[in-house]
């Protein structure tokens, strides 16, 4: 199935369409913000502080020191998207590697891998990120690695269960009867058949990564405070939540919508990539 066909099937569902549209807008916004934003997101201008939305060209208004909120959201989207995608990649690698070893390795290796997965799953990802940030300094890389490992082990657990199930099927036995080796069976039979589940898992990881990244920057463990991010905006504005609730609502809404979009997109993708669920013409 071609990628284009999958995309069309995803777009046909309302959930998938919402996910695609929101994430598309976000990506466009993030790319545009590299070259242009309505205002310099870092410019402090006491003269235009506390502006309400739609005044003097500030679509979402400004904060205490005159930062344009819309520009800040656009620039913040970069960090959100980069963290979401990179964390999911790390989680996919960690999850697949651990899952394959746990499911296909010799008995004692599999047992150790399962024990490792269980221990790491029990360890809160937020805490793991804080520990890593404390040791290696807070940076985007640390956040990505922490989220990738933290959620990757959860992916590994699901991957192991799925691989074990697929490995026991007749068609894998049939493939072995046909002379296929382990590598070919992994590529042709195991990976394609666990892909739908894995895609949903990874979309969940992306959604959670957005949330955790915002939480970490809010707590001051993420990227440098100088670079605008949604979590940083929440952190900035929380002191004035009673006076200007809107300023907290914008980044909060952005995080919530993005989390929702990743979740819905994952669901739509799963349905679109499973030929058993696709209506045939």
């Amino acid at each position: 199935m071609t990628a284009l066909r999958v995309l069309r099937l995803v777009a046909r569902r309302p959930t998938g369409a919402f996910g695609l549209v929101w994430l598309g807008l976000l990506t466009v916004g993030a790319v545009v913000s590299l070259f242009w934003t309505p205002f310099d997101p870092q410019r402090t201008d006491p003269g235009s502080a506390w502006l309400l939305p739609f005044t003097d060209g500030h679509v979402l208004g400004t904060d205490r020191i005159g930062h344009d909120q819309f520009s800040q959201l656009l620039v913040g989207a970069r960090e959100t998207l980069v963290v979401a995608v990179c964390s999911a990649l790390v989680a996919a690698v960690v999850g697949l590697a651990l899952g394959l070893v746990a499911a296909l390795g010799p008995r004692w290796v599999g047992f150790s891998a399962v024990a490792l997965i269980d221990i790491l799953v029990a360890f809160p990802t937020l805490l793991l990120a804080m520990v890593l940030a404390a040791v290696y300094g807070s940076s985007l890389g640390t956040v990505v690695v922490a989220i990738g490992i933290g959620f990757g082990v959860a992916v590994a657990r699901v991957a192991r269960a799925e691989i074990t199930a697929v490995r026991g099927t007749d068609y894998v036995l049939a493939a072995r009867v046909g002379g296929a080796g382990t590598g070919r069976i992994i590529r042709r039979h195991l990976l394609p058949n666990i892909a739908p589940t894995l895609i949903v898992q990874l979309s969940l990881v992306m959604a959670l990564a957005v949330l955790v990244e915002a939480a970490l920057t809010y707590l001051g463990y993420g990227s440098a405070p100088s670079s605008p991010s949604w979590g940083g905006m929440l952190h900035e504005q929380q002191a004035h939540i009673a006076a200007r609730p809107l300023l907290v609502i914008w980044p909060g809404l952005a995080v919530a919508l993005t989390v929702l979009a990743f979740n819905l997109l994952g669901d739509a993708l799963r349905e679109a990539t499973d030929p058993r669920l696709v209506r045939t013409r």
């Binding site: 099927t169 007749d170 049939a174 002379g179 296929a180 042709r188 394609p192």
Partner: peptide, 21 residues
Amino acid sequence: VRGERIAMVFQEPRTALNPLM
């Protein structure tokens, strides 16, 4: 040897084929 010299037909044709291929 498998598939080349010895081959097999299974009981459940539906489960003996990869549903995604």
